[in-house]
Design a protein around this nucleic acid. Structure first.
Length: 495
RNA sequence: CGGGGCGUAGCGCAGUCCGGUUAGCGCACCUGGUUUGGGACCAGGGGGUCGCAGGUUCGAAUCCUGCCGCCCCGACCA
C-alpha cells in the first residue's frame, strides 16, 4: 500500500504563490544553473548540463539515424553576410552582438585595459544569432551537382541573441542549441525534410521529455526570418502559457538565391537548391522543468534523468547496510540504469530525501537494518510522491518497470493537464474570459489575415501559436473581424 | 529606453529615517562532541574595502553629490 508523504519544501516558493519565483527557485535549488557575471548569460551547472547532454545525445542519435551528419561552422559571421537575405537581417539585426576590434591595450590614462583604436576590424563580425548565412555562403562551394545533394548537416553550437529580458534556460543571451541546415534538389524533398524533423522533435518531446506537444505551422507573422514555412511544436506549461519548443523551417530557395547556390540536375539544368533549417535549444530544459516539476522541486522523466535511482542508507552507510546496498546497486546497474549510493555520513536521511526530491531523481531507495531484517526495501517515486516497500529479491526488475511507469505517468499527467487547459471558444468575449481565467490553449476561428491576428495580440497578448497539423476543417467566424473561417487555430499567451 | 525597487560575509536579511563603542542576525562553512527511519543538537571558530568615487563632520553603513551594478514591471524575441 503506497503511502503519500508530506513534502516540506521550505526552500521553494509554491507555484500558486509566485510561479516565476518557483521556476527560479527550482533552477537554483536543483543546481541547474547560476546567474553569471555577464548580464543575461547563465552558468549551466553540472546537474543542468547533464540533462542537456542527455537531450543532446538522444537527438543526435535521431538525427544520425535519419542520415544527418555533424559539422561545425564559425562563431563569427561577417556583417555583410547577414544583410544578403532581406527578411533574415530584419529579423535578427536588433539583437546582434558585434565584434569591432581585435586587440586591447593598457589604458594610457590609468589602470586597466581599453580597446586599442588601432585594432579596428575592416569588416565587423557578428556573433552568430543563427548560422544560415555563413553556412549557405559555404554551401555555395560545396554544391555543384545533384550528386552533392541532399546535404544533411547539423551542428551543435552556441548562439547569441541580445535579448532585453532573460530567464534561465527559457531565454538567455547566449544559449546552446543544435541547428540543422539541409540542401535539396527539389522543393518536395526539402518540404519532406522539414516535416521529418518536425516529427522527430515531436517524438523526442513526447517519448523522452514526456512533454506533449501540438504540432503545427506558424502564421506569416510568427515565421522564422527568411523562411517560407515554419513548423513548430508547442507545449503548455503549468501556468497556462505556451512554450515554443522546437522549430523546423522550409526555407524555399531564399538562401540559395541570396548566396547563389546552384546545382546542375541530372539533365544538366541549373537551378537553385532548396533548403531547410531546424533547431532546438537549452530552452527545452526550461520546458522540461515547467512541465513536470512540483512544489517540492524538480521532477525529471526517467529517460532524461542523469541519475535515475539513488540509494539512501538509513540512517547511514554501515557495513551491513552497505553490503546489501551495493548488491542492489550492481544489479540495477546491470540493467543499464544509472544509480548511486549516497555515502555521505554527515547528513541525515531526511535531509537527503529533501535534497534528491529537489533534484528530481525519479526513484529513491531507502534501506535500513529493519528493512533488511524483513527482506524489504523502501521505494519512493518522485512523480507521485509515494513510498512503498518491496522485496529486496527482484527489486532491480521492479525498479526498471517503475522507471517505465513513471515515464508514462508523467506524459499521461501532462497530457491530462493540457487537455484540461484547452478550450474551444467562438466569441471574443469568451476568448478574453478564458485567457483571464484558466489560460491555456484556445482553439478559435481565424480569418487568416495578419490584421486579425495582430489585433488579438494587441488586445490580449495572446498569439496564434500554430495552425495545427491535421486540423479538421470546420466553418466558423473570425473572433475579431467576423469574417468566415474554415478552421480553428491554436491561440495562447506564450513565453 | 520608460516606471518601480534594491546594493551590508557565499546566500537571505536587520541596522540607514534620527551619524557616535569593536557592524549584527539566520542559513551555509570549519573543529569537537552527542545524535541518527523525513531537512539533528550543543559548544567553539573563520569569513566584511557596508556597490564605487568624492564631499560634509571631531566622527559616516547612516547625511549630500556623482557614477556603477542588479532585480521586477512594460515595448522585441527560441
Amino acid at each position: 500500500m503506497p503511502l503519500i508523504y508530506e513534502i516540506m519544501a521550505k526552500e521553494i516558493t509554491a507555484r500558486a504563490e509566485d510561479y516565476s519565483k518557483w521556476y527560479l527557485d527550482i533552477v537554483k535549488k536543483a543546481g541547474l544553473a547560476d546567474n553569471s557575471a555577464v548580464r543575461g548569460c547563465m552558468v549551466i551547472k553540472p546537474n543542468g548540463y547533464a540533462i542537456w547532454e542527455k537531450m543532446r545525445d538522444q537527438l543526435d542519435r535521431m538525427f544520425k539515424e535519419t542520415g544527418h551528419v555533424n559539422a561545425y561552422f564559425p562563431l563569427f559571421i561577417p556583417k555583410s553576410f547577414l544583410s544578403k537575405e532581406a527578411d533574415h537581417v530584419e529579423g535578427f539585426a536588433k539583437e546582434c552582438a558585434v565584434v569591432t576590434h581585435h586587440r586591447l591595450m593598457n589604458n594610457p590614462n590609468g589602470s586597466g585595459v581599453v580597446v586599442d583604436p588601432g585594432a579596428k576590424l575592416e569588416e565587423e563580425l557578428i556573433v552568430r544569432p543563427t548560422s544560415e548565412t555563413i553556412i549557405w555562403n559555404t554551401y555555395r562551394d560545396w554544391i555543384k551537382s545533384y550528386r552533392d545533394l541532399p546535404l544533411l548537416i547539423n551542428q551543435w553550437a552556441n548562439v547569441v541573441r541580445w535579448e532585453l529580458r532573460t530567464r534561465p534556460f527559457l531565454r538567455t543571451t547566449e544559449f546552446l542549441w543544435q541547428e540543422g541546415h539541409t540542401a535539396h534538389a527539389t522543393k518536395k524533398e526539402a518540404e519532406e525534410e522539414a516535416h521529418l524533423i518536425h516529427e522527430i522533435y515531436a517524438r523526442f518531446a513526447e517519448d523522452y521529455m514526456a512533454m506533449p506537444v501540438i504540432k503545427g505551422a506558424k502564421t506569416a507573422n510568427e515565421r522564422f526570418a527568411g523562411a517560407e514555412q515554419t513548423y513548430t511544436i508547442e507545449a503548455l506549461m503549468q501556468d497556462g502559457k505556451a512554450l515554443q519548443a522546437g522549430t523546423s523551417h522550409f526555407l524555399g530557395q531564399n538562401f540559395a538565391k541570396a548566396f547563389d547556390v546552384k546545382f546542375a540536375s541530372d539533365n544538366n539544368i541549373e537551378d537553385y537548391v532548396w533548403a531547410t533549417s531546424w533547431g532546438v535549444s537549452t530552452r527545452l530544459v526550461g520546458g522540461l522543468i515547467m512541465t513536470h516539476s512540483d512544489d517540492a522541486g524538480l521532477v525529471l522523466p526517467p529517460r532524461l534523468a542523469p541519475m535515475q535511482v539513488v540509494i539512501v542508507p538509513i540512517p547511514k552507510p554501515t557495513p551491513s547496510i552497505l553490503e546489501v546496498a551495493q548488491r542492489i546497486e550492481s544489479q540495477i546497474k546491470a540493467l543499464g540504469i544509472s544509480v548511486k549510493i549516497d555515502m555521505d555520513e554527515k547528513k541525515r536521511p531526511g535531509f537527503k530525501f529533501a535534497q534528491y526530491e529537489m533534484e528530481g531523481v525519479p526513484i529513491r531507495l531507502g534501506i535500513g537494518q529493519r528493512d533488511i531484517d524483513k527482506g524489504v526495501i523502501e521505494v519512493a517515486r518522485r512523480d507521485e510522491r509515494t513510498k512503498s516497500f518491496v522485496s529486496i529479491e527482484g527489486v532491480d526488475r521492479y525498479v526498471k518497470q517503475l522507471l517505465d511507469d513513471i515515464q508514462v505517468n508523467l506524459l499521461y499527467r501532462a497530457m491530462h493537464f493540457r487537455d484540461d487547459r484547452t478550450s474551444f471558444v467562438d466569441t471574443f468575449d469568451e476568448f478574453e474570459k478564458v485567457l483571464e481565467g484558466k489560460g491555456g490553449f484556445i482553439y478559435a476561428h481565424w480569418d487568416g489575415t495578419s490584421e486579425s491576428e495582430l489585433k488579438i495580440k494587441e488586445k490580449t497578448k495572446a498569439t496564434i501559436r500554430c495552425i495545427p497539423c491535421d486540423n479538421p476543417s470546420e466553418s466558423g467566424k473570425d473572433l475579431i473581424s467576423g469574417k468566415p473561417s474554415n478552421q480553428r487555430v491554436l491561440f495562447a499567451k506564450a513565453y
